[in-house]
Write a protein that binds this DNA or RNA. Structure first.
Lengths: 255, 255
DNA sequence: TCGTCAAACTTGTACATACATGTGGTCATC
DNA sequence: GATGACCACATGTATGTACAAGTTTGACGA
């Protein structure tokens, strides 16, 4: 990992607690050290300690409240932004060898619905990628990626069979700051079915993702379809904490 | 809603900003007032202002950074804990009339896999509910709920055709503090298909939920299956912010 | 005109303090 | 033994201050 010059205190405290929980030093149900103890342990003030706690709280690792001691919740998986946006990165963390088999990469004018989803005028050039992704050489997911030309340039210049497009974009200085995902289920169409080696109509977990810059510009619009027995989404929510997700009723005509 | 005696400052600030954003007073891409301006506007100190900002940030509404002004991101849906756990509540917020058609409610000894998922010994009594849920009288979702007896008592004493079990449990003083959801896709089985009026094998969005008390005890284990064209999940993640979700590779034998 | 640099912002981090508010245990009282 | 008042301690909220580390702006000079 990239060595930081001097780690922020709240970051160090959060890292310590996270690690201690993951490694079982604090078991689910156990009480965490009180804020006062942590300030002593890290020779810090209450601010950084509370900031670290807040982080773990929104990660779903702990629960706290007025008067109560902070307790460790059941160990639940959470992943960083980078882990969850990059299939390759995600596989590496799970000790799985990621693979990819590019079907095609093209530059083309955006037809209507794609233009709308990328919020560009009809017919503006886009770069589209269609890949089969593998886990340990086993077909797992098909991904359809679409980029506006300015970002897509980097994709065209990249060997899409060589690994993570996401990592390449980062290396090229593309600023990816936020993503919004919509998850539903869909039956495999003929393309999906052939690549994933399942019958047409097999239920797939569909994740449509849109990625934005910190300025709010749309960078990517993608459609990933997973074999549901190979991958699933998990998320945690805690009462009183802000949530970053929603169950939305799909109205007609929503592509 | 329940009237609060005196609203907390950070809460009031967050509410103001949230409302102003939702109502379009601040458009996506716009800069929010600086912290200094907000402290003046609310006659507050920086603490509450920053706390409110932090809340909106984890909700995915805004983005900020050193030196940069805070900007409004694209309007994205997020829902509170209560909205997302209760189908009835969720429908109400979307101006949809929720309905339910109970198939059965039984008390029975837990068979092996159910006992494991509720973390109780094999054969311990559980209360199970099987309902078809409707939106504006149209079949939308089938839900299978399982409760350990202590909680299930309240369910047995409740007319499950009359509305929200969740609300009833809250009213009975059951402490529901956290949930963990796993989302994947599955084909409709015969029961699902008959109730939802679709062919067997139709792809459904499956949401398996486990609910916990603040002490970490398991209260509920459920399996909801949505018609994917009626509902979908949306979630936002921002780089550098903690995430509460994970994409997990499903290993064999995981029910 | 154009580049440079410094000043004036911005948000992030940290410390010290005070009080609010809820939990849990002690201990005297009934 | 049960009850209830009380106290110690927990986390939540709020204020004030200071500095760190980016971004923007504009004055100034080449």
């Amino acid at each position: 990992m990239t060595q930081q010059r001097t780690r922020q205190q709240h970051d160090e405290i959060a890292h310590y607690l996270r690690t201690a929980i993951r490694e079982g030093y604090f078991q689910p149900g156990d009480e965490l050290p009180s804020e006062a103890e942590l300030t002593r342990k890290f020779t810090s003030s209450r601010g950084p300690v509370r900031q670290a706690m807040s982080t773990l709280r929104t990660e779903g690792l702990i629960s706290s409240g007025r008067g109560r001691r902070t307790v460790v919740l059941d160990n639940v998986p959470t992943q960083s932004f980078d882990d969850i946006i990059s299939f390759s990165q995600w596989c590496h963390n799970a000790d799985i060898v990621p693979g990819q088999c590019t079907q095609w990469v093209i530059r083309r004018p955006a037809e209507k619905s794609l233009a709308a989803s990328l919020r560009i005028p009809d017919g503006d050039p886009v770069v589209s990628v269609f890949r089969l992704r593998l886990m340990d050489d086993v077909p797992t997911m098909v991904e359809r990626l679409n980029y506006p030309l300015e970002v897509g340039r980097h994709v065209l210049a990249f060997d899409t069979d060589s690994g993570s497009i996401y990592q390449e974009l980062i290396d090229q200085g593309v600023d990816i700051s936020r993503t919004s995902r919509t998850i539903d289920a869909i039956g495999a169409n003929e393309d999906d079915a052939a690549l994933l080696e399942v019958p047409v109509g097999t239920p797939l977990l569909r994740v449509r993702r849109r990625a934005f810059t910190s300025a709010g510009e749309l960078i990517e619009s993608s459609d990933d379809r997973y074999l549901p027995w190979k991958a699933s989404f998990t998320m945690n929510s805690t009462r009183g904490n802000p949530s970053s997700m929603a169950l939305t009723s799909t109205h007609l005509g929503d592509v």
